[in-house]
Design a protein around this nucleic acid. Structure first.
Lengths: 215, 215
DNA sequence: CCTACCGATCGGTAGG
DNA sequence: CCTACCGATCGGTAGG
């Protein structure tokens, strides 16, 4: 048995990929993001690596597994970034800002991963889809809890913390749709603005009907 | 030649569909939204209508054409709703509220259409993709113009009207991801809250760093 | 509306 | 890493 005949191990979430395995990961991110998972063939992936389709199977178990790895890794990264952002402060407004900025930064730095994760849910099998949906619900639950605490403390003013949580989250995720590293908008600038936007959503007392037209 | 052998005419954007043509439209919306365009086969569509795949071609020219019709119609509806919402007022804040509420209502009422339109861009041919992208850019341009005017008038406070426009738009589009007509959140309630959120994003002076922690 | 059918393409395997 | 190849499935056509 030669060395290229070894099956690549399933990489845990935070393991660094190397060589061809890393190249495949990169090619999959780019092609899945551009053409969609089902619009990307194993031949497309292979061509990107300068090899033939069957050779891919020395680096992956299946195309489906690559998609699942991308989506699982991305959700784990998001949850971890959320946890980290919560450390160090108990003030709801500051927590919302930190969590929002951390999420905005993650979307900017892992644009293709986030795009794929949100678009390709229907491309997963039932089991995997349930796992991903569970992680997404968990993410929203934390966001809602922050808003609820801020509301109870009189810092925020929203009708429904859950609705506000969804609004904040999807606004942040929307970055995947337009952000490009063109230099026109630096990462830090955009991150800060999105932090402001998140607080603008949660602190809407001032922009309610009546007060708006009455300014 | 029998009556069912006639080719269905390509339906203009606002023509009312009838009978089987309407059934096909409905089935396509549901299946494309749930499984994705490429995850839906002509056999799936046919089964939904109680017929065999080849019979579909009495009601459509191709599967691709159905997708294009859905996406074109949806973008046209959005632009039309935007135009209508702008009539009757010149105040930027009120325009932003009306446009945002109109868009939120459209997303709620045409959830599947909006979802498909945003997710299936990679499933379009190059030409169609360019047309859809053009319409999306046009939509953002109007939103940005409103925010720019409000900024000039001192009603809004954002660093970049374009960035704010994207944030508002993607927050509104995010409704497609979670809104279900469960009765837990009435359409009117959610629409009003999202109008508030949009103004919260545009009027961020109060939530800037410093003033937030200083409250 | 149907049956019969087709060329193309797909993800993946065998075997070296 | 390759060539050879395969069973399954796809969108769509022919012809009635």
């Amino acid at each position: 048995m030669q060395q290229w005949a070894q099956q690549a191990a399933v990489p845990p979430v935070h393991v660094r990929r190397e060589g061809r395995s890393q190249d495949l990961w990169e090619a999959a991110l780019t092609l899945f993001a551009e053409r969609g998972y089902r619009g990307t063939t194993t031949r497309d992936l292979a061509r990107e690596l300068g090899m033939r389709a069957p050779s891919l199977y020395n680096h992956m178990r299946s195309k489906q597994e690559v998609l699942r790895d991308i989506m699982f890794t991305t959700m784990e990264r998001a949850l971890e970034a959320q946890r980290e952002a919560l450390e160090g402060t108990d003030a709801a407004a500051e927590q919302l800002r930190r969590v929002s900025e951390a999420h905005a930064r993650l979307v900017i730095r892992h644009r293709r991963e986030v795009l794929i994760t949100h678009r390709e849910v229907p491309s997963l099998g039932e089991e995997d889809r349930a796992v991903i949906s569970g992680k997404q619900r968990k993410y929203v639950r934390v966001l809602r809890a922050i808003i609820e605490r801020g509301l109870a403390a009189g810092r925020f003013d929203v009708e429904s913390p859950l609705v506000a949580a969804f609004a904040v989250l999807e606004m942040l995720n929307g970055l995947e749709k337009w952000y490009r590293e063109t230099g026109r908008h630096s990462e830090d600038d955009v991150v800060r603005q999105y932090g402001d936007f998140a607080l603008g959503i949660a602190r809407t007392k001032e922009s309610r009907r009546g007060s708006v037209t009455g300014i």
